[in-house]
C-alpha cells in the first residue's frame, strides 16, 4: 500500500500567549486515518498546540501544514472539524440542538442557504452522537455531557477529514463517554483522522494509535497510549517512568520507520 498521507504537520512550532512561551519547538504530525492524543499536565501546551493547528493562536516560529498545504495558503476548511473546549453550547438567545449542529455545515454551504444534502448530514451527525431525539430541544435544557455531544455533532456535520477536539470528555458521564467513543470509532472507520487533547484516556484508549506527551511546551514522549497514560497522569506511581517509551518527537511512526504502518 502507498505510504499514508500526512494530514497535519507541525515542525519546530513555537507560540506565545502574552509574554509566556507556551510552545517551545514542537514537532507533531497526524497521518491519514490516524488517531493522535495529546497528553500532559495543565499548562503543558496541549490546548495551545491544538489552537495553533486551527489558526486561533499564531505561530511565532516553525511551520504548519494542513493536508500538505502551508497554513497561510490553506482555505479548504471544510476538511477540518473542530470541537472547542467549552462547557456550554448556549449563547444569549435560545437555540435548538439542530440549529447549533447546522452551523457546522456552513463549512460546505458557506454563504449559501442549506440544501437537502446539508440537512441530511446534520441529521446523521445528530444520530451519531445519540442526540437525534433531542434535535428540537433548546440547548439551554441540556446537561453538560449533552452540550459536549452537541458540539461534537456540530463538527461531524461537516463530514471532516481531520477532526480536532479539545478535551471532548470533560464533564461527561460514563454513558456519554461510551456513546462518544462509539461515534468516534465509526468516524475513524470511515477514514477520518483525529487529533485530540485528553486528560484521561477513558473509553477512548483502544481507539488511539499514538499518544504524545507534552511537558512545558515540548514533546516529552511519544508512544502507545497505555504506557504514556500512566506517565502523563500518574508520573510518581509509574515505575521507571523515564525509561519507558523512547522517541523524542511527535512524528508519526511512518515518518520514523517508513513502511511499518499499514
Amino acid at each position: 500500500m502507498a505510504a499514508p498521507q500526512t494530514v497535519m504537520s507541525l515542525r519546530d512550532a513555537t507560540a506565545t500567549l502574552g509574554a509566556r512561551a507556551v510552545l517551545r519547538g514542537i514537532d507533531l504530525t497526524v497521518d491519514s486515518g490516524e488517531v493522535v492524543a495529546l497528553l500532559g499536565a495543565n499548562g503543558s501546551g496541549k490546548s495551545t498546540a491544538i489552537r495553533t493547528v486551527i489558526g486561533q493562536v499564531p505561530l511565532t516560529g516553525g511551520e504548519l501544514e494542513l493536508f500538505g498545504t502551508p497554513f497561510a495558503r490553506f482555505r479548504d476548511w471544510r476538511r477540518v472539524g473542530y470541537v472547542p473546549q467549552r462547557s456550554t453550547a448556549a449563547a444569549g438567545v435560545p437555540a435548538t440542538v439542530r440549529e447549533v449542529v447546522s452551523s457546522g455545515r456552513l463549512s460546505h454551504a458557506r454563504l449559501r442557504p442549506l440544501g437537502r444534502a446539508d440537512r441530511a448530514a446534520v441529521t446523521r451527525a445528530l444520530e451519531l452522537v445519540g442526540m437525534a431525539d433531542r434535535a428540537r430541544d433548546s440547548v439551554n435544557a441540556l446537561s453538560g455531557g449533552q452540550h459536549q455531544r452537541v458540539l461534537i455533532a456540530r463538527a461531524l456535520a461537516g463530514a471532516p477529514d481531520l477532526l480536532i477536539m479539545d478535551e471532548p470528555l470533560a464533564g461527561m458521564d460514563l454513558a456519554s463517554q461510551d456513546v462518544l467513543a462509539e461515534a468516534l470509532r465509526e468516524q475513524v472507520a470511515r477514514g477520518t483522522s483525529v487529533l485530540l487533547v485528553l486528560h484521561e484516556l477513558g473509553p477512548f484508549a483502544p481507539l488511539i494509535d499514538r499518544a504524545v506527551l507534552l511537558r512545558e511546551g515540548l514533546v516529552e514522549r511519544v508512544g502507545n497510549p497505555e504506557a504514556l497514560h500512566d506517565i502523563a497522569c500518574h508520573p510518581h506511581d509509574t515505575h521507571d517512568a523515564e525509561g519507558r517509551a523512547g522517541i523524542g518527537a511527535g512524528l508519526s511512526m511512518s515518518e520514523l520507520n517508513p513502511g511499518t504502518r499499514r
Partner: peptide
C-alpha cells in the same frame, strides 16, 4: 453563537 468555531468553518 461561537465566533471561534465560525472561523474554523472558514
Amino acid at each position: 453563537q461561537d465566533e471561534e468555531f465560525a472561523r474554523v468553518t472558514g
